[in-house]
Design a protein around this nucleic acid. Sequence first.
DNA 1: CTGTTAGCGCATTCAT
DNA 2: ATGAATGCGCTAACAG
Lengths: 370, 370
Amino acid sequence: MTVTLADVAARARVSPATVSRVLNGNYPVAASTRERVLRAVDDLDYVLNGPASSLAAATSDLVGILVNDIADPFFGIMAGAAQTQIGGPGDGSGRAGGEKLAVICNTGGSPERELTYLTLLQRQRAAAVVLTGGAVENPEHQAAMAAKLAKLADAGTRIVFCGRPPLPEGDALVAALAFDNRGGGRRLTEHLISLGHRRIGYVAGPRERTTTRHRLEGHREALHAAGLDDFPAGGGPGDGSGHRAADDDPLVVHGPYDRRSGYEATLELLRRAPDVTAIVAANDTVALGACAAVRDQGMRIPQDISVAGFDDLPFSVDAVPALTTVRLPLFEAGARAGRLAMGKENPPPGGIATIAAELMIRGSTAAPRG
Amino acid sequence: MTVTLADVAARARVSPATVSRVLNGNYPVAASTRERVLRAVDDLDYVLNGPASSLAAATSDLVGILVNDIADPFFGIMAGAAQTQIGGPGDGSGRAGGEKLAVICNTGGSPERELTYLTLLQRQRAAAVVLTGGAVENPEHQAAMAAKLAKLADAGTRIVFCGRPPLPEGDALVAALAFDNRGGGRRLTEHLISLGHRRIGYVAGPRERTTTRHRLEGHREALHAAGLDDFPAGGGPGDGSGHRAADDDPLVVHGPYDRRSGYEATLELLRRAPDVTAIVAANDTVALGACAAVRDQGMRIPQDISVAGFDDLPFSVDAVPALTTVRLPLFEAGARAGRLAMGKENPPPGGIATIAAELMIRGSTAAPRG
DNA sequence: CTGTTAGCGCATTCAT
DNA sequence: ATGAATGCGCTAACAG
């Protein structure tokens, strides 16, 4: 019924071993033989049995890409970019040669699902795993992740972090591409301060996420430097003290990275502190919700209140007014992560590269009135 | 080095077969035995070898989800929804039980890559494949797809179409969920006509895509019914005659489904026909570009010109003014496709279900000026 | 309910 | 440059 490598060998009048060699291409084979085999493959419409070859070779051509939320373009862009480097250009024949199969796994931001996917990928003997987006800063989960990743690395799976800082104990990694969330957050708030804002609301992302913490820390650094913080700016990375401080700050509200959260948090912020003249959102999607809330309260952007986002997703430039935000080179980072996963590119020195964030000043921010 | 099922069996003092049975859970095993095995699994930190079990069982736990562009929320939402039904809720242990691994494959809208991915999935002996989004209407490609899908189906892979019409010869399919693109497009243009618009520009998607064709056909149906078409409304589905007609229509411009295309096509439309009072875009992303172009020309929306989109992506309600569009229940459709792929839900009668599109009238459309 | 026995289809030694 | 033989780790009959 199903045609196997042996069938191809028979038709090409060679041994199975030879067929295997031409298919994998990593061994010298006479040109004439190769051609005969290839013809037999086409004639028989043969498709390699992936599980069988993975079993024999003890490795598969799967590359996993873990994302928090694939419906969010932030992840979609990175994942799509990574896939361009992994899937290979295709030879146009639809025949599928030596390319890898990039598989995007949607964790929904849940630590459990993240681990489950890693186990599934481990089970598949994945060639590489790319982890995107902020990590959950829970000691237990971090330990479990470190252990799991170490096991994957042991089994020969390449590990790449993209837009996420490496794990504290992370030696089992090929490379990490970390976004400069803190620097971006700082420059964004500095911009607002330089415009004359003194009371700035902050709609933060979910707690216990590195992305959330770093962006917020950058914000507070800028406030602190300007002497605008009623609360301490928090300690160094990972000491956790920043959380308590932020928890007490009435100008900071936490919520998920979605539009609705931005809307509601902004309403709450406006209630708590009607004198805020600017609102910084954890990302562009949240900022869109913030804009809607501001408008629904009868205020204009930026005349009555400035709003800023983060990421510079494609729709941000089309917001009205266009959104001031911090651009992250998501596509480039994703592509680079893909190349690292494929071993096409050498890891950065020290295993970690920090990717710069660029302030994009547009129409949604302006000097406060009066 | 690597722990195998035999090791677990030895430690649990049972046969390998028994371990296999508790792991797969599809066979009666005494509770006490099961517990012993499970403990051994935990003690040894055993992870099933996917390739080996797929080889032996002649099927894998992979489910492929093909999308045109994962950076586009249109696909991200469907894919994410499908994955919620496929990945399983996870048992919170990170241990990975019987769940499937949903893998999202980004074709970039390229027919070759689509076929390549199907071959890769076939190679992996995927349990199911979900194809999302519009299909390319190229006879050669359609034939190749039909052949490939038939082979997959033969090998026991379940096939589900989501937001895409089934193939003409498509019998090798479990189910198709098709969006009512034509009806949605028609109602949208009817709405514009009822508002008083007579000259309506249309920014269409790429040619040779079912989605593009159906939406455009709906538009032209509405025009025709109102006696507003200078050109024939095109024949029935698939006869291709609609294309030629549309090609000659100065009020229709084709382009990719992205913001930039919307911007440029709108400029072109405005140049060709300065008297248009409304612009219908192929989707919301394109509509955003159209809005930007309209504004850059110094015109106001909707006072000077109305703009409408399609899909009702999350950001559309936050556009200013909020975008009139056609809502497609992307999440629900994706989830249903996921359930169909898992065999959790029965296929619709006749194998195909049409999913209704709902007109969302918002601020970006209004009556033309006097 | 559990153990025994055979392969699943291929990549790789080792020969030649 | 090619062929022959071996085993990857597991599941699925088949017994018991």
